[in-house]
Amino acid sequence: MVVRRIMSLRILLILSSLLLTSVSLSAEEFAVATFTRGKVSFLSSTDSSKLWKTLKVNDILKPGDRIKTGNGSKVDFLYQETEIRIQPNTDFTLKEWNSDKKIAKAYVQNGAAWFRVNDFKKGSFEVSTQTTTAGVRGTAFGVFYEEKEKKGYTCVCEGLVNINGTEFSKGTGGAVKLGASELEKNDYKGLITKEGATIQFQEKRKGNPMLSRCLPCHKPVGWEDTSFTPDETYGKK
Rank of each mutant, 00 (worst) to 15 (best):
Y145W: 00
K206L: 07
W97T: 13
G138D: 01
M1I: 15
I6T: 05
G179I: 07
K189W: 03
K236H: 06
Q87D: 12
E224Y: 11
E182V: 14
G111M: 07
E28K: 13
I84F: 11
T229P: 09
S169G: 11
F141L: 00
L94Y: 07
K53R: 07
M1D: 14
F77D: 05
K177I: 10
T226K: 07
V57L: 05
F92N: 01
I60W: 08
N71E: 15
R85Y: 09
N118L: 11
I192C: 00
S41I: 02
R213T: 11
V143C: 10
S45Q: 02
A27S: 10
T93M: 01
K194F: 03
K95V: 13
L191D: 06
S212P: 08
R10Q: 14
T233C: 00
K150S: 15
W223G: 02
A27D: 06
L43G: 00
S48I: 14
K150D: 15
I14N: 14
M210D: 12
G135A: 14
V108K: 09
A113M: 05
V221P: 09
F120K: 02
M1P: 07
L18Y: 07
T193N: 10
E126R: 13
S24I: 03
I199H: 01
K236P: 07
F42K: 10
L51V: 15
Y79W: 12
T131H: 03
